[in-house]
Nucleic acid binder design. Structure first.
Lengths: 249, 249
DNA sequence: AGGTTGATCTCGACT
DNA sequence: AGTCGAGGTCAACCT
């Protein structure tokens, strides 16, 4: 996994190291004093400072400072990566088109640089996504309201899709918007848009339900004012009742 | 800057290393085979695989795989960090309250671990934020429309704030919503909300203008259908004309 | 390639 | 502490 590592390399040694590994499906880690320029959707410059640089085999690049999960500068995926000598310093260029962006990293001093092989064989499982919540509630719509019948999932209406489209025991159409976390007023507005879109196409009464484990106070007020309903549902609804359901027929 | 680095340390040596540096205002970098559990707002597990681990002095932790800017697992800022031996493996615990979350990293094999001092003395400048755009357009509202007079910035109306509140040459009130990038339909709806809120309080006619460097086709259609206007403005409006303005008085 | 949505979003600012 | 909105959001999915 550890391919090669240098400590305090001279610029020429660093350049050779980078050129040997940059395009070799390798993950690079560099710690050192660095100066970063970015130009693209916005423009930024960072004066020289101690930073941690990460370059992954997909060409993505990130420059980390001493705080936070977010890099100080980054490039999601580069179409072109190169290393050159400029004024006695190694300079990394990371460019991409669409959007047209470039990050230039000038390495003033390198304390350590490492080439690694990060093979990605590992299984990854995430529980609690909105997609899982949607699946669970589509199977057990009574967790939202008794007598609800799900007609569709991800129904496209105008722009965007309705998480759950259903009919209640009274025959009303019901638009359900799901949020896996606490719902804010943006979720209420999103629901309002979908309800409006359905009302424009259907003559029968249409209800809007925001289903989430929690809701902010302002969002609840906005919902009530707009005639939309909020229903508290668990983020990980346990749908094990069906296993207990006796076979009736 | 480079404090200490070990290659292929045994678990006991790694544990000593981590305990010596974890709470020493130091940035840690670890490359190795690792297994990660996360529980909090969601739940995830990653089987053993080659990963790159980063721990910063603020307690933030991230586990990187071979692709993308985003870590596979992370923890934004921990209240509690600890390292222990469990079944012959070093295990890192990173916990925080609010939200209650925990990340557990089991180090199965460590190829390299490094302690770094990332002093943050570096100046960072970002140009092209929406705040800068707002300031520039407030000073030069003619870039949006001739004869516009800005009355207010970030005017609070109901929930949320109006980026720019103005009056046009005809005496109409104008609500301006700014976007630094391409505007989507969410921006149009946001503008619509604000316009509605102002109309409810003012008897004079109210216009809504979406000012952005670009707009998606669907968003433009929605805007036109709702009687809202789109004005193309540069993301970095150069307001140097005022320097050329002759002193009239 | 363009558009939309979700995210363990992160992060800062403000109440 | 809670809420809100921006972000160079990123990244996945769909048309």
């Amino acid at each position: 996994m550890l391919i090669e590592s240098l400590t305090h390399p001279a610029p020429e040694a660093l350049l050779a190291f980078l050129r040997a590994h940059l395009h070799a499906r390798v993950t690079l880690h560099l710690a050192g004093e660095v100066e970063v320029l970015y130009a693209g959707r916005a423009t930024s410059m960072a004066e020289a400072g101690d930073r941690l640089l990460l370059v992954k085999p997909d060409g993505s690049l990130q420059v980390h400072g001493p705080r936070g999960v977010k890099p100080v500068n980054w490039q999601p995926r580069t179409d072109h990566l190169s290393a050159d000598l400029d004024g006695g310093c190694v300079v990394l260029h990371a460019e991409r088109r669409s959007p047209a962006e470039v990050v230039r990293v000038r390495v003033i001093g390198c304390a350590q640089v490492t080439a690694l092989n990060l093979a990605d064989e590992a299984l990854f499982l995430l529980q609690g996504s909105e997609a899982q919540m949607q699946q669970a509630l589509a199977r057990a719509p009574h967790l939202i309201e008794d007598g609800l019948t799900v007609l569709d999932r991800e129904l496209l209406v105008g722009v965007g899709g309705i998480d759950l489209y259903a009919r209640d025991s009274q025959g009303c159409f019901v638009v359900v918007e799901l949020k896996r976390g606490k719902a804010g007023h943006d979720a209420v507005h999103q629901l309002g848009r979908y309800v409006d879109a359905v009302r424009a196409q259907v003559s029968a009464p249409v209800r809007g339900i925001l289903a989430a484990p929690d809701i902010t106070v302002p969002a609840l007020k906005v919902a009530q004012a707009a005639g939309l309903e909020y229903v508290k549902v668990d983020a990980l609804p346990q749908v094990q009742e069906e296993a207990r359901q006796p076979m009736l027929f």
